[in-house]
Simulated scan of single mutants.
Amino acid sequence: MIAKRWMGGVLVVGVLVGVAGCSTPPAPPAAPGPQLRPTQQGTEAKPTTTRNAPAPVPTPDGTCPEGGVRLVETGGDAAMGLRVEGFQLVNCGTEPYVLEGYPEVSLRDGRNDPLAVTVEHGAQGFTTGVPNIEAAPQRVTLAPGQAAAWSVVWRNLVTDPTVTATTVPVLEIAPRPGAPRLWMRLARPFDLGNTGKLGIGPWTAVTR
């Protein structure tokens, strides 16, 4: 559009540019929001509880345990509910090994948990006429390669049907105070019935 105006005798010609009909440019599209990923259920780590301590690893045959002695099961006898089981302790080290009195005995179940069994010295209350178990304690010195014997006695009796019978599959002993403990999975587990006790004999020298 051309506009004309007289100013001081001079004709001024100008061009007016119309703005009507011009629109504001559209706003840019909104940025996309964060992408949500599906969550996984059931992946939260939960603490695990070990019910029982693992059983110790047996010493391979032909090697000597840390304490320099090895526990050996020698067998026993069973008659009319009476059980007698024998063991030997062999000095497989290079130094003399001194024993005195009785071994310290712990009885365990198949998961290596302690069993509530009373361990008594001697055969009184179980039987009579078992010299190795009824012998007086004595001092025994084992030279390398020598062995000492000790025995266990019990009765397989069930006198109360409301009490669960006890079976002992694992034997653990300390040959002397402060010595490394030895354990053995028994070839013939102790079947104590529900008597809840057994007797042990002292160390005795083995003569060959």
Rank of each mutant, 00 (worst) to 15 (best):
G68I: 01
G68K: 01
E73N: 03
T74G: 01
T74C: 07
G75E: 12
G75S: 13
G76E: 10
D77R: 15
D77K: 15
A79G: 10
V84S: 11
V84Q: 14
V84W: 10
V84I: 15
Q88N: 08
L89V: 09
L89C: 06
V90A: 06
V90Y: 00
C92A: 08
C92W: 11
C92M: 09
G93H: 10
G93V: 10
T94C: 01
T94Q: 14
P96V: 02
P96T: 04
P96A: 05
Y97A: 08
V98P: 07
G101I: 04
Y102I: 10
Y102E: 12
V105E: 00
V105K: 01
S106E: 12
S106H: 08
D109S: 03
D109P: 03
D109T: 04
D109I: 03
G110K: 12
G110Y: 05
G110V: 05
G110Q: 11
R111Q: 14
R111F: 10
N112I: 04
N112C: 13
P114G: 11
L115T: 06
L115E: 08
L115C: 09
L115S: 04
A116R: 15
V117A: 05
V117Q: 09
T118H: 07
V119N: 07
V119F: 07
E120V: 12
H121T: 06
G122M: 00
A123P: 06
Q124N: 08
G125E: 05
G125D: 07
F126G: 02
T127S: 13
T128V: 11
T128G: 13
G129F: 02
G129M: 06
P131T: 07
N132M: 08
E134N: 10
A135C: 07
A135N: 08
A135H: 07
A136K: 15
A136W: 03
P137W: 10
Q138S: 14
T141G: 09
A143S: 11
P144Y: 05
G145D: 05
G145Q: 04
Q146P: 00
A147L: 06
W150A: 02
V152N: 01
V153I: 14
W154Y: 15
R155K: 14
R155C: 10
L157H: 08
P161I: 08
P161M: 06
T162H: 09
T162S: 13
V163I: 12
V163A: 11
T164W: 00
T164P: 01
A165G: 04
A165N: 07
T166Q: 08
T166Y: 00
T166V: 14
T167F: 00
T167H: 00
V168F: 00
V168M: 00
V168W: 00
V168A: 02
V168S: 01
P169C: 04
V170K: 01
V170Y: 11
L171H: 02
I173V: 11
A174D: 05
P175E: 09
R176Q: 11
P177E: 11
P177Q: 13
A179M: 05
R181V: 09
L182W: 03
M184T: 04
R185H: 07
R185T: 11
L186S: 06
A187P: 04
R188E: 15
P189M: 05
